[in-house]
């Protein structure tokens, strides 16, 4: 007796497998017992070429509830992600994910991920979600760009043979000091 939410997510999964944008990853988690956790998806969004975010591959998590698709999923980057529209907890503030604004039950996982990719380079300071990025974005384009590049570098795979594993974590530590 599958729930409406899970039935829909199984359909979403099928739709994604059939067709999805290049460079994106989206898949439900696998639980320890080998079952598929349809309500929790791990995804990756590539930064758009030609933007400050390019080359990075950003992990985001989609958390659905049994009320999906009446309600949108919760979408989050890792906590502390630097972006004017990302809350300190990592949650993304985006109109299509807002039940009162743009959310419609027909919005697909693909549209959500493309929407978040779009948001990366088009921050909306009218709905700022964190102080740090908001202030920097307002203060100086150059400084903001510099900080974004540091953020992007955290999520850029090191070139082959450069640093195995741990490289990304090291970079992250440096950034926190900033």
């Amino acid at each position: 007796m599958s729930s409406l939410a899970k039935t829909r997510l199984q359909t979403e999964r099928k739709g994604w497998r059939k067709d999805h944008p290049h460079g994106f990853v989206a898949k439900p988690r696998t639980a320890r017992d080998g079952s598929v956790d349809l309500l929790n998806w791990d995804c990756k969004i590539p930064g758009k070429a030609g933007t400050l975010w390019e080359k990075g591959l950003y992990p985001i998590r989609l958390e659905f509830t049994e009320d999906y698709p009446s309600k949108p999923p919760k979408v989050s980057f890792p906590a502390g992600f630097f972006h004017p529209n990302v809350y300190p907890s990592g949650k993304v503030c985006l109109s299509i994910l807002n039940e009162d604004k743009g959310w419609k039950p027909s919005i697909t996982v693909k549209q959500i991920l493309v929407g978040v990719q779009e948001l990366l380079d088009n921050p909306n300071n009218a709905d700022a979600a964190q102080e740090a990025a908001y202030k920097l974005f307002k203060k100086s384009g150059a400084e903001y760009a510099k900080r974004v590049r540091i953020e992007a570098a955290k999520y850029t795979e090191a070139p082959a043979g450069f640093v195995a594993g741990g490289g990304a974590t090291g970079a992250e530590d440096d950034v926190i000091v900033l």
Partner: peptide, 10 residues
């Protein structure tokens, strides 16, 4: 039907 989303797949 709102529940469907992807009519073609269904």
């Amino acid at each position: 039907n709102d529940g469907g989303g992807r009519g073609d797949a269904k």
